[in-house]
Design a protein around this nucleic acid. Structure first.
Length: 653
DNA sequence: ATACGATTTTTTTTT
DNA sequence: AAAATCGTAT
């Protein structure tokens, strides 16, 4: 039996043991919201709720897994049956079963960003849009428009008029492309990320029997990071909870940092209106940070208007004032951070208790070079993700066509790898094989070459050899064999010719093979890759390796959400970078950037360093002068004596 | 016309 | 690091 009173504070206890029904929990940073969710789940199970009747939606799969591990330590293996994961994950799991109801086959592929972009690009060409029209939005921008419209449940016209006014003259063509894109996805049996949400909602809205089934299946719904949900996700939750209203959402409106993805603060603000019987709880005790750090964070966030009233109280005592360090340029900043890291390591702070946070990935470049130079071990938790690297995508493309023979992006990706086949000829080949029952057989037929340039022959033959090997000999339902066959069939040679770092790429593929072992089917494996959990989350061996050698963490602020470190450095706290110039152009941009600043600051347990560079050290060294971030300036009005500022300023030579 | 290599530019944030 | 652009080779 768990002694809830003993292990929780009174705020948490009330949340965890609350009666069923709609609950809104406003949980400040570091107030133990994970703890509340974990114990709530355990409590429900102890009350006799079947674990497989609990839906636990989290922001990352990692969060779901770590929560379930903790629930397991409380109530034992019963926890294993809980439905936990991201919206996209659970949507995928449900849609696989009912795909036919929304016009898809159950073996659909999931397009990642790049695949989706390419499909949009070909939709532009197919829609016959004159390529001379220079100002027509690029595929990436079109994708953003379409995605934002989907995630905010707004018409494309409205999105373009409000957010992309410059493109409004192309409205007719944009609509053509969007329509074409939608049709193509359906024809090819592929879904993009947004479809996993949209089709899920469609399923619940249009099919009452399915709706009833899931409303019955999920007796209790728990949602983490509710402030980052969008309209579609809120609809899905409300529909699923419609029969019983047992929905507990936990969030912090001050940490909403995903509005670019359609996240909508009004979800959390209006939850009590949606659910009239909702009870509202607040977790306002902060266990993480020292008072000076919390004071700085609180002083910053009050500059935002719209928010739930709450006041974070520090439990901890003492602590050092945060440090503000103006530095001459990027190199100087890198030097300072590296130096401080070494000094603190000497004082006995483990490297993996230190993190460097920044607004955009490329902000960390100079620092990475400096850390390498000084032999300080580090991991970068941002930037190009493991599963998005070219070699990983190449190899998995073979598996994709094995699962879904009409996965056009996968076919084209593979075709252009071969000599003599570029974009145009890959397109021609695809057209030839696309309207057969099974393109995987059609690709072998002898009359294919008739319609093609002679130049494709050697490349095409090579491709066929590998395909033959992969499909026939390997038993393509085993990812490890596929990877093995592809490497042996010429891909290894290709890697060595093309990349300097081929060794690490081959190593990646070995890791991929090891990673694939935990999946039952190729389909499950591919879904997991597309839905992009981090690298090797569940690989015990690698986790142990990482712990053996401690490393400093480098991360974007977005990816740092939910994590904490003893020491946090924020670099590039300069106007233009934090807040980011481009982000300020968005509506509500300043407030969102300030919330990012708040999230970053509240990651720190003991020490916080705010670094600012006086000069922009972009390449070519065009030294544009920079001002300190407004978020720093607004904390310390000029009339405030230095002693009373929430930070102390260091002069670093 | 197409492929492909060299060069230049450009980076928000993520499922 | 990758995408977009440009020039040359096939």
């Amino acid at each position: 039996m768990i002694d809830y009173r003993e292990e929780l504070n009174s705020e948490q206890y009330r949340v965890v043991t609350a009666d069923a029904g709609p609950l809104l929990v406003i949980a400040g940073a570091g107030s133990g919201k994970t703890r509340a969710l974990t114990y709530r789940t355990a409590w429900l199970i102890e009350q006799g709720v079947r674990p497989d009747r609990i839906l636990l939606v989290t922001f990352t799969n990692k969060a779901a897994r770590s929560m379930l591990t903790r629930v397991e330590s409380l109530v034992g293996d019963r926890a294993g049956m809980v439905w936990g994961g991201t919206f996209h994950h659970i949507g995928n799991r449900i849609l696989r079963r009912h795909a036919r109801r929304v016009g898809y086959d159950g073996n659909y592929s999931i397009l990642d960003r790049e695949d989706a972009r390419q499909l949009v690009a070909s939709a532009v060409v197919e829609s016959g849009i004159p390529s001379r029209g220079k100002r027509f939005p690029t595929a990436a921008v079109l994708m953003d428009m379409i995605s934002l419209a989907a995630n905010t449940d707004t018409s494309l016209e409205t999105i373009v008029r409000k957010r992309y006014p410059g493109a409004f003259t192309f409205m007719t063509d944009i609509l053509k492309v969007a329509f074409r894109y939608r049709i193509r996805k359906q024809e090819l049996n592929v879904m993009d990320f947004d479809d996993l949400l949209l089709k899920w909602r469609d399923l619940l809205v249009e099919h009452e029997d399915v709706h009833a089934e899931y409303a019955r299946t999920f007796e209790h719904i728990l949602v983490d990071e509710y402030q980052d949900t969008n309209r579609i996700q809120a609809d899905i939750l409300n529909l699923t909870a419609s029969h019983h209203g047992n929905i507990m959402v936990v969030g912090d409106d001050s940490q909403s940092i995903y509005s670019f993805r359609g996240a909508d603060c009004t979800n959390i603000m209006t939850f009590p209106e949606m659910w009239k019987k909702a009870r509202v709880f607040k977790l306002e005790t902060n266990y993480r940070s020292t008072p000076p750090i919390l004071k700085l964070a609180n002083l910053s966030i009050v500059n935002n208007r719209e928010q739930y009233q709450k006041k974070l109280r520090a439990v901890r005592k003492g602590g050092a004032r945060p440090v503000y360090a103006p530095l001459s340029d990027g190199m100087h900043q890198a030097d300072f951070v590296a130096q401080r890291i070494l000094e603190m390591a000497d004082e006995g702070i483990p490297l993996d208790e230190m993190a460097v946070l920044y607004r955009a990935h490329f902000h960390s470049m100079e620092l990475q070079m400096e850390l390498v130079r000084r032999d300080i071990p580090f991991v970068v938790r941002s930037g190009i993700r493991f599963f998005e690297q070219a070699h990983v995508k190449d190899v998995t493309a073979f598996m994709r066509i094995a699962v879904n023979p009409f996965d056009e992006p996968a076919w084209k990706r593979l075709l252009v790898l071969y000599g003599g086949i570029g974009k145009v000829r890959a397109d021609a080949i695809w057209r030839l094989i696309a309207d057969s029952d099974d393109p995987r057989r059609r690709i072998f037929s002898d009359d294919l070459e008739a319609g093609l340039s002679k130049a494709v022959e050697p490349g095409l033959m090579e491709f066929r050899t590998i395909l033959d090997d992969v499909f026939k000999t390997a038993g393509f339902d085993d990812p490890r064999r596929v990877i093995d066959r592809v490497l042996a069939g010429g891909y290894r040679r290709f890697l060595r010719e093309r990349y300097d770092n081929y060794q690490s790429r081959e190593e990646d593929l070995k890791q991929l093979a090891a990673f694939s072992r935990q999946f039952e089917s190729l389909e499950a494996f591919l879904s997991e890759l597309a839905l992009m959990t981090g690298l090797n989350e569940d690989d015990d061996a690698s986790r142990r390796r990482e712990q053996a050698e401690q490393k400093v963490i480098l991360s974007t602020i977005h990816q740092a959400k939910g994590l904490e470190w003893s020491v946090v450095f924020m670099i590039r706290c300069s106007e233009g970078a934090m807040p980011l110039e481009r982000a300020l152009k968005e509506p509500g941009g300043v407030d969102e950037e300030r919330r990012l600043f708040y999230v970053a600051a509240t990651r720190a347990k003991d020490q916080l360093y705010l670094c600012h560079t006086l000069v922009d050290s972009g390449r070519g060294g065009w030294g544009r002068r920079l001002s300190p971030s407004r978020f720093i300036n607004e904390l310390a009005p000029a009339r405030l004596p230095a002693k009373e500022r929430p930070f102390e300023q260091w002069i670093v030579e």
